[in-house]
Structures are given as structure tokens and as C-alpha cells.
Amino acid sequence: MSKKLTEIRWHARGGQGAVTAAKMLAEMALSKGLYFQAFPEYGPERMGAPIQCFNRLSEEPIRTYCGVESPEVVLVVDPTLCDVVDFAAGIPEKGLIIINTSECPATMTEKFRLHGYKVATVDATRISMEELGRSMPNIPMLAAFLKVFGLLGEEEARQFVDANFGRKFSAKVVAGNIKALQRAFGEVQVNG
């Protein structure tokens, strides 16, 4: 975690929980004493439509309120978006791209010409299908981010999800999300 500002862009489809994950990342940053923002690309939300949301993280107060144009980190929460949106737009060299896909980083790098970036992949959809019984890739994607980027370790993240989801969801849903989180921590692959 560098002292300077880190900007993050999430690409997802409405209903996949990306906005929730971005908000959760903000709360995780709070637990580490950092400053942060989490905001969606504003507009009417439609299930299934491509959406973006954003985070800023910093050790110092953040007073920038414009849109994020050149994020160092991009998360592609829905694998079908890779062909639909320019998810690499604006990323500086050596920026981090985390993609929900069953492919490995080397394959994705070749396929989408991501040479020069750090590419990470995790099959978040399959993990959530197996652990939650439905496609809700937000928590595995957040876990992949934490593993590759830092901020919270696996045990800290588990406790965080336990405490946060425990208030809102059934024990079964909480357990499923924790399992998904732990699996993504273990299964994420990094290249570059």
C-alpha cells in the first residue's frame, strides 16, 4: 500500500454486487485507518447492464471529486464484459488488471494484448456457483484484489465478511461467502 493515491475501477453488470464490493472495500480501508472513496458511475441501474464503480484509497485525506480516468487497478467482475467494454482504458503501465475468467493470466494477456500490465485471473463465477449456488462474483473478486494488492490478509478479510454479512444475511449465506472468499484467496493466479 503506497502512500500516494490508488484509484480503482470496477467493471461489472448490474446485479453482480460490484457496488457493494466497492463499498465493502471502503469499509476495509477504514478498518486500516486509511482514507477512501467508493462511488458508482451514476445513472439508472438496470440488472445485467454494464456498470462501473470506483474506489480511491490513500493514507492521506482525499479531496479529489472528479471521475477516475487512469486507474492503477481494474477489476473485471463479469467475464462477458471483456469483449464489450474497453476495460484497459487509461490504465498506466504496470497497472493491475484482475479478471473473472476460467482462463489463466497468460491466455488473457495474449487474447486482449495486456502486455505491460500485471494480469491476475480468478474463476469467480464458478467459485460463487459452487459455494453460494448462484452467480455472485463480487466477494471472490474482492478477495482476489486483497490477495494481489494487499490491504487485508485472508484471516482479517474473513473476520470482516463475517462481521459485516453476519448482521444482514443468514448463517448459510455468510458461510458460503466466507468459503468463496477463502477459495479466491487461494485460487487467484498472477502473471507479470
Binding site: A22, K23, A26, E27, L30, F36, A38, F39, Y65
Partner: peptide
């Protein structure tokens, strides 16, 4: 306060 930019953004 500014709509969306502040109203809908999570901040510390």
C-alpha cells in the same frame, strides 16, 4: 451538497 458526487459516494 453536490448530487451523486457527494450524496451517493462513500467517504470517510
Amino acid at each position: 451538497l453536490d448530487g451523486f458526487i457527494i450524496s451517493h459516494a462513500v467517504e470517510r
